[in-house]
Nucleic acid binder design. Sequence first.
DNA 1: GCATATACTTAACACTGTTCAGAAAGAGTG
DNA 2: CACTCTTTCTGAACAGTGTTAAGTATATGC
Lengths: 249, 249
Amino acid sequence: MGTQERRERERHERRTKILDAARELFAKEGIEAVSMRRIAERIEYSPTALYLHFPDKESLFRELCRSDFAGLALHLNELAPVRDPLERIRRMGEAYVRFAVEHPNHYRFMFMTEHPDVPLDDQQQCTKGDPEKDAYAFLRASCAEAIAAGQVRDDLHDADLLAQTLWAGVHGVAALCIDRKESWIQMHDPDVLATHMTQALMRGIRREGAAAPGAADAHAGKAPPVAAAKTGGPVRKSPRSSRSPRPRP
Amino acid sequence: MGTQERRERERHERRTKILDAARELFAKEGIEAVSMRRIAERIEYSPTALYLHFPDKESLFRELCRSDFAGLALHLNELAPVRDPLERIRRMGEAYVRFAVEHPNHYRFMFMTEHPDVPLDDQQQCTKGDPEKDAYAFLRASCAEAIAAGQVRDDLHDADLLAQTLWAGVHGVAALCIDRKESWIQMHDPDVLATHMTQALMRGIRREGAAAPGAADAHAGKAPPVAAAKTGGPVRKSPRSSRSPRPRP
DNA sequence: GCATATACTTAACACTGTTCAGAAAGAGTG
DNA sequence: CACTCTTTCTGAACAGTGTTAAGTATATGC
């Protein structure tokens, strides 16, 4: 009987209707400024109706941002064809800051607010570690690749440590540019800062003697072994207990 | 007539009584979790009484954090006697992250929340730019010094650009460590990350050919020209910054 | 003694996220 | 058809928030 399926479908439509309304308000005004009542109002529901589809406000926005995480990963994956790992990483940094500045509200929610330690649900569980859907995994894989290629200084041969250092660098640029936009400290242009940050970090992590990539490098015609081809190791999903990269070689 | 002065004094005492209660709650639970009612309760006032001393909640916390800004600047100024500008900057980075991790709530309010573009009041107006009271000014001055000393690459000869790049680097470490403490990405130890970040950045900004400072440098016995000329203080004990791991020279 | 400024309180407003009891409508079953 | 059960939504309410208006003591200044 098709009724079951039709109901499922209609339910899904209602859900996305809520999410669409929320996304619009949220992206424009930020998470704090948007109340459940206003979201409900916009789609002519009562506030209570939202709670039939989402347990609370945070879950609603979490769901909303999940797609944005995927979007970020997709955005960065466009750089997968760049052959030289360090050059790829450098460009990822620039693209990352651009993404953050263009979607400040999403970025703020994704990376600038404390998230309670809620256990990953099934969907997150299987995207985690997949370089195509998990931006951090992609970065980490590229770092591992660079290390394996002997491009990185000896004291940075831990892929997680390297990835987190680089991530922190561009996150700092993004976060300061978003928060301190109208502050007593006049920040430079995000693009300029991002470029200098990534270049400085590249010089800072590169093994001495390793040649900097000339402008010659650039794109490869064909997608190479998928950006590291699992360089990051057996990246599969890990049942949450595996949250201990625990490096220290 | 002494009544005026006494009243002024008593008023000031009430003010600090409020601030003390607020500081305690705020530092423990964060700005969001603390309500005006709870602050008032703690000192056996009615909630409205707070509004006789502060126009609103944000002003209260702003006042509270002003002293912490000064504290940060003081903390960093202990490094003023370090003669070599780049080495001084590098250590400032480490000290900065340590400060952030030790006072996460204050740091979050100072540098991780959007502050409305409120015009600086008189007091802020005159601390701004003073390296002893304004940590950014101190960093910027050190950057200018390093540039003047010919230690910095030519493409980073803008003191603000350089300062903001370095700041962003350590801010990224601090912010990620504070926010992602319990996240699906297990962050490395803040100290380790801070050390690697600052070292990588130092290598990344240093003019090629300029010698890295040997461990020989370190403290100066006497106040050297710029840095300490303004420190006004002989920079005695550094009660809290003494635990500098500092591996890998 | 009296007006006044100060410090405080009670009551209330306009919000917030969230829950609970119920109503209306459709589907499945006798 | 009637009966039940599920789904979907609503209205009212709870417990909280920051903040304001109006009113009350009390000490000061004349």
